[in-house]
């Protein structure tokens, strides 16, 4: 995996090879590679001269530092009480139907991953999701279906 090695080197140069730059480096890997593989962790440990166990420990602590491949578009549905009261379950049901996957899964074409997440801080505009980094609020089943279909169109896939 020369790519990952190269990427880790670049990031360590950009942020500096100190332990306190571990989080930005790991975030950088997720941004370009989609997830942090074991090779990547070992590589980061080597670059920063810290133990691989330390890198592993930190990586697995944070919910945004994925250790497994995920879809190009990650949909995180807020499951906290305010969004629940505004019907987040209907949003999830609709998403499971359109994407034909269950919560936690990734579509076969690798386009979408469906997850739940804790409070997104959009409680006054629930139900809310984060689509990669961007929040979408005041959702309805119709709106969420359109969001998915628009992405599919953009990515040129048929339903």
């Amino acid at each position: 995996m020369e790519d990952v090695k190269q990427k880790v080197k670049e990031l360590s140069l950009k942020y500096g090879r100190a332990e306190e730059n571990l989080l930005p480096i790991l975030q950088g890997i997720v941004e370009t590679e989609g997830y942090i593989s074991e090779e990547a962790m070992v590589e980061v440990a080597r670059e920063l001269d810290i133990s691989a166990a330390h890198v592993y420990g930190t990586t697995t602590f944070y919910s945004f530092l994925d250790t497994r491949p995920k879809g190009k578009y990650v949909i995180r549905v807020c499951k906290t009480i305010s969004c629940m009261m505004k019907g987040k379950n209907e949003i999830i049901r609709e998403l499971e139907n359109v994407l034909r996957i269950k919560l936690g899964e990734t579509t076969h074409d690798g386009l979408f991953t469906l997850r739940e997440t804790n409070c997104l801080g959009q409680c006054h505009k629930g139900p809310a999701i984060l689509l990669n980094d961007v929040p979408y609020t005041d959702l309805t089943p119709t709106k969420i279906r359109k969001i998915v279909n628009d992405i599919r169109k953009k990515e040129n896939v048929s339903n």
Binding site: A18, E19, L23, I50, H54, S63, L65, C119
Partner: peptide, 19 residues
């Protein structure tokens, strides 16, 4: 990176230190 506990001040420092 998505961890509520990091709002607690000392956890926040740990997080900034790469832990």
């Amino acid at each position: 990176s998505g961890a509520y506990i990091c709002g607690e001040e000392s956890a926040l420092f740990e997080s900034m230190e790469g832990k």
